[in-house]
């Protein structure tokens, strides 16, 4: 089993579930713990949902490149999209007194990713948003 899995996920597409299933097959092949698989699924779903909702102003289908990499005791999940420049790390965390039930770019989903993953980095590279999320594998 390769240490890297590259996926191309289409926005506005019913094929998202297919990509998530491929990722889960890869997690299973790497014998990752239940907790790591849970966190990785959360990262995939929340980031891709955010990109799908907010990165593009049109209704066209866009490709999002997703790379999963098992390296040095970590799982790296990298997302690249050519949507509007958006650094989710600059978004304030949602105010639980007011806005947990509202949908805002970089809102609750990204807050969960930032709190539950070990590191989250954003860069704008060659006209693309690049988000790298690392989850420590611990004893997994």
């Amino acid at each position: 089993m390769s240490e890297i899995l590259n996926l191309t996920v289409e926005t506005n597409s019913a094929r998202l579930a297919e990509s998530i299933n491929r990722a889960n097959a890869w997690f299973e092949a790497h014998d990752l713990s239940e907790r790591i698989v849970y966190l990785a699924n959360l990262v995939l779903e929340e980031v891709l949902t955010n990109i799908n909702k907010y990165a593009f102003d049109d209704d066209e289908i866009h490709d999002v490149e997703v790379r999963l990499r098992h390296e040095q005791g970590q799982l790296l999940i990298e997302f690249k999209d050519d949507g509007k420049e958006f650094n989710p790390l600059l978004s304030p965390p949602p105010d639980p007194n007011r806005s947990l039930d509202r949908s805002e770019a970089g809102g609750l989903g990204i807050h969960l990713v930032r709190k539950l993953a070990d590191t989250v980095e954003y860069q704008r590279e060659q006209g693309k948003n690049v988000l790298r999320v690392r989850i420590s594998l611990g004893d997994a």
């Binding site: 849970y38 929340e46 989903g109 969960l112």
Partner: peptide, 8 residues
């Protein structure tokens, strides 16, 4: 499994 949409 619980994602943000479920939390909302």
């Amino acid at each position: 499994y619980l994602a943000s949409l479920g939390i909302r």
